[in-house]
Every structure is written in structure tokens, then in C-alpha cells.
């Protein structure tokens, strides 16, 4: 990795709430210009990690640097160097679009001609030019999120933290949002983003997977897929429920789960499974319309990694 020039750097970062360890000795580095994806089930510690990095929460132990400033000690300097968009929409609903932009311009010290230029840029970027004087509360969620993104980058920060920025919006708005993220990254902004959506994970240059407060994987999307150890088979069947019952617990099978109308079956040995599983299905009276090996999706990889790490915290 890039060493001292890293945009974000975490070393053995931990945060405890009483007896509960929300983040457990997490270390990673993010290079400038990366779109760094932070993934994991609910309660994995993603948001807590982000809050420690951007100065909203003090770490219990460990250290880190953001934009070259030490977290915990140089919070105010970090806050000037980053943009942050929190999980829930948190602009002012009783302010108009322009009033929200002006307010955050004031807080980030964006003044004079630059303020007007940045305001116009945000309005154009979010597609809100014709709605500049509408109350923010009246906007659709997609608009709100683009406005929140705009307000987070008014001061053109080198690093942008986005905590589940697209949760709850339709796929088209989500796609538009990611176009904006790429635009920012193309301009040199380091983007640190958490998400639940696997197709979004594919857009990231690198992915960190967290579970139960621990970092359990860190690689490019392709690298993660290549690292999957166990073969994955797809079973097409008119009776997926019956097939699930027949295969669950079979000695050849590591894990079996419904995936749309098919079954994804993770197996220990490809050849053995391909020969033995049809017999088991036949014995259970379940028809098979085809069983073949497939390339694991990121979702398969993550489920495998999370289960290997002891399952999600909420299970």
C-alpha cells in the first residue's frame, strides 16, 4: 500500500461501549483516489468505525490518521478536510434547498464568489435547479440524498465519508448517485463508503468486510471472488424447498441456500458433489433441471466469509 501518503489509515482501532466491543482492533489503509467499500451485516461496526475516523466518536484504543491528521487529537482539522454524509438524512427539512446549502457553506467557510459557484454546482449536480426554493422536507428521498452529498462536498474535501448513502432509494436514483461518486473520485476525491448492496460493492476499487467488529477480509472485488475456497454449484429445480430439505446436512454439502428460484450449494469437492447430489435428490423425489458449477457472486463470497467468521451478530 501507499504508506505515509494514505488518505485514511486505521491502526488497531477499537471502540467499546461498556462490555460490548463494537469495533475490535481494525487496521487498514485507503489510498488517495480510491473508492473504498466498507461492507458487513448490521451491527458489524461499520458506522462506529466511520464515526471514529471522522471525529464524531473517540476511539477506546488504537490510532489512525485521516488526511494526515491524527484521529482523536486533531478532530477539528479532520472535520475541515472531510465531507460526511450520515446514514439517516440529516439536513434541515424546514429549510429550503438553497438555505441548507448556504448554511453548510457558512460552516465550512466557503464564502464570496466561491460560495455562489459551489451553490450552482450543487444545484446542478443534484438536479435541483428548479427546486432551489422548495422546503427540503418535501423532496423525494433520491433528491434529498443528492443534496446531502452536495452539502458534504461544498468545501471540496479531499476525503468523503458516505454511510449507507443510498439506502431506501430506487435503483435509478442509486445508479445516479454512484455516477456522482465516480465523478468525485475521478476528480481525485477519496471516497469511503459503506453499503448493504452487493452490486454497489462491485463499483468499489477495494472492499473491506467487517463482521462482529472485526475486519475479516480486505481485497479488490475480483481478488475476493478468486479467493473463494469452496466450489459453488447451482441447482435448478421446480421444488426448491424440497431440494433444500434433501441437501441440507448432506456430507458433501457445506452450505445450501435459496437464491432466487435456484439453490446455491457450496460443496467440499466439486466432482464428488456432482456425482452424489443427483442421487440424493432422486431419493427424496425432487426433480433436478440441472446442476452445474458457477462463479461465486460477491454475495456468495461474503456470506461464506461471514459464516466462516462465526455468523452475523444479529443471528
Amino acid at each position: 500500500m501507499t504508506g505515509p501518503a494514505a488518505a485514511v489509515e486505521a491502526k488497531e482501532l477499537s471502540r467499546r461501549f461498556g462490555d460490548f466491543v463494537a469495533v475490535d482492533r481494525v487496521s487498514f489503509e485507503v489510498a488517495p483516489g480510491e473508492v473504498f467499500g466498507f461492507l458487513g451485516p448490521n451491527g458489524a461496526g461499520k458506522t462506529t468505525t466511520i464515526k471514529m475516523l471522522n471525529g464524531l466518536l473517540a476511539p477506546s484504543s488504537g490510532s489512525g490518521r485521516v488526511a494526515g491528521f491524527e484521529i482523536g487529537r486533531e478532530r477539528e482539522a479532520i472535520k475541515r478536510s472531510i465531507g460526511y454524509m450520515s446514514q439517516l438524512f440529516s439536513l434541515y427539512g424546514d429549510l429550503t434547498v438553497v438555505e441548507n446549502i448556504d448554511f453548510f457553506s457558512g460552516l465550512y467557510g466557503v464564502g464570496g464568489e466561491r460560495r455562489a459557484a459551489r451553490r450552482d454546482w450543487v444545484l446542478a449536480m443534484a438536479g435541483l435547479v428548479d427546486h432551489r426554493d422548495r422546503l427540503t422536507a418535501e423532496l423525494s428521498l433520491g433528491w434529498k440524498q443528492r443534496l446531502a452529498l452536495g452539502c458534504a462536498v461544498l468545501h471540496e474535501p479531499p476525503i468523503l465519508f458516505l454511510d449507507e448513502p443510498t439506502s431506501g432509494v430506487d435503483p435509478i436514483s442509486r445508479r445516479r448517485f454512484w455516477d456522482l461518486i465516480y465523478e468525485l473520485a475521478g476528480g481525485g476525491t477519496t471516497v469511503f463508503v459503506t453499503t448493504h448492496y452487493m452490486e454497489e460493492a462491485e463499483y468499489c476499487t477495494r472492499l473491506a468486510l467487517m463482521n462482529r467488529g472485526r475486519l475479516i477480509a480486505l481485497d479488490t472485488p475480483a481478488g475476493l471472488r478468486a479467493g473463494a475456497r469452496e466450489p459453488l454449484l447451482r441447482l435448478a429445480t421446480p421444488d426448491p424447498i424440497g431440494a433444500l430439505a434433501a441437501l441440507d446436512g448432506a456430507p458433501e454439502v457445506v452450505r445450501v441456500g435459496l437464491f432466487g428460484r435456484d439453490l446455491h450449494v457450496t460443496v467440499r469437492d466439486r466432482e464428488r458433489a456432482l456425482s452424489r447430489l443427483p442421487e440424493r435428490l432422486a431419493a427424496a423425489g425432487v426433480r433436478s433441471d440441472g446442476l452445474d458449477e458457477i462463479r461465486p457472486s460477491l454475495e456468495d463470497v461474503f456470506i461464506a466469509l461471514v459464516l466462516a467468521a462465526g455468523g452475523a451478530a444479529e443471528d
Binding site: 471525529g55 472535520k79 475541515r80 460526511y84 454524509m85 450520515s86 440529516s90 460552516l107
Partner: peptide, 8 residues
């Protein structure tokens, strides 16, 4: 407050 707190 969260957004406010993240500003300088």
C-alpha cells in the same frame, strides 16, 4: 445534530 457535529 450528526451532520452539524461532522462540520468544523
Amino acid at each position: 445534530m450528526e451532520q452539524l457535529a461532522a462540520t468544523p
